[in-house]
């Protein structure tokens, strides 16, 4: 317990990771708009900075200078609290995400439990925001969000149990390391490019599928963006919000998306490992990790502009009647296969 190891270096790491993620989130908003435009045969924002890269920062300035309207009929303390509650969980969950073998803020043994415990708090921001707005659309959005997140959190939890049955630990660094040490097949050890087969996505395909779909629902992304379904609910839970408060909800949504992708990469796609390149040092590991996260984020955006929104009853049926049994089946299957192959 010294000042350097317990205060100084963690603070530096927090500074690096938080800033990097915030900038990435800003670029993510730009990417979302550009990719959606390209998919629709448009160009999207391309004026501010090279290829429009600074668009998000221009938007941020606009958000800061806009009038911050607080309607008279809202419950003010909760109304002000909600945007902060929407952003905090995503930021806190970053603490246990392993960006590289040494670049992790808190290397805790209960890694994934911490992520789930914190990220499920995200629903409070949305629900409280919807309730405090004292507006029927906001309230409906908030209620939908809470029901959706509770339903899909269970599927999310069940989907990752298979991974931890293989890794026998909840510590995220160990999960990553185990995915990067090559595979054993018929008594031979295969390294190099075959290492990619060690990723959990190939050992747990069903788990990965459920995790991704539940992840879409958790982050309120299309095809599960019922809390803010524009056609039905105006803007859902953030109908009454303006200025920087709205920007915070926005930031929270995209940061949650980033965290969900980071967790998916850590658990299923080998984290910061890639063909043994990770031995080059922490910076290469960070680049590998961010590259994988960005690829997954592209997938998030790509899906958003492909699939239409689910109906509410379809969403609930999918969660409880399809993914819950599938998740349980995945656990049983993993157990049986573990017994057979003695891993």
């Amino acid at each position: 317990m010294t000042f350097w190891t317990d205060v100084f270096w963690p603070a530096i790491k927090i500074l690096i990771i938080l800033n990097a993620v915030l900038i990435l989130v800003a670029l993510l908003v730009w990417a979302e708009r550009r990719i959606s435009a390209f998919i629709q045969d448009r160009l999207g924002p391309n004026r501010v900075g090279p290829a429009g890269l600074l668009q998000s920062f221009a938007d941020l300035l606009k958000f800061i200078f806009k009038e911050d309207v607080t309607p008279g009929h809202v419950n003010k303390p909760y109304f002000v609290l909600a945007p902060a509650l929407a952003v905090m969980p995503a930021m806190i969950a970053l603490a246990v995400v392993p960006f590289a073998s040494t670049l992790i803020i808190a290397d805790v043994d209960i890694g994934i439990l911490f992520v789930f415990a914190i990220s499920s708090l995200g629903v409070y921001g949305i629900t409280i925001g919807g309730w405090a707005s004292n507006n029927k659309y906001s309230l409906l959005g908030g209620i939908r969000s809470s029901a959706q997140m509770i339903s899909y959190e269970i599927c999310l939890g069940l989907a990752v149990i298979g991974v931890f049955m293989l890794s026998r630990t909840l510590r995220l660094q160990t999960v990553v390391e185990m995915q990067g040490d090559g595979i054993w097949l018929f008594g031979n050890h295969y390294g190099g490019f075959a290492k990619i087969l060690d990723w959990n996505v190939f050992k747990q395909p069903l788990g990965f599928l459920i995790f991704m779909i539940a992840g879409f629902a958790e982050t309120n992304r299309l095809p599960f963006d019922l809390p803010e379904a524009e056609q039905e609910l105006v803007a859902g839970y953030h109908t009454e919000y303006s200025s920087m408060k709205f920007a915070l909800f926005f930031l929270g949504e995209y940061a949650a998306m980033f965290v969900m992708s980071a967790v998916a990469v850590t658990l299923f796609l080998g984290g910061w490992t890639l063909f043994g390149l990770e031995e080059l040092g922490w910076f290469v590991q960070l680049l590998i990790f961010l590259g994988k996260v960005l690829a997954l984020l592209f997938f998030f955006i790509w899906v958003r502009w492909t699939l239409p929104r689910f109906r509410y009853d379809q969403l609930m049926r999918l969660g409880w009647q399809v993914f819950l049994p599938l998740g349980l089946l995945n656990i049983v299957l993993t157990g049986v296969l573990k017994l057979i192959f003695k891993v």
Binding site: I35, A37, F38, I39, Q40, D41, R42, L43, W302, W305, T306
Partner: peptide, 14 residues
């Protein structure tokens, strides 16, 4: 696949 095809399409209407 369809959206990816449009994403990669060079010609834009803008």
């Amino acid at each position: 696949g369809l959206t990816l095809k449009y994403f990669l399409k060079r010609k834009k209407f803008t």
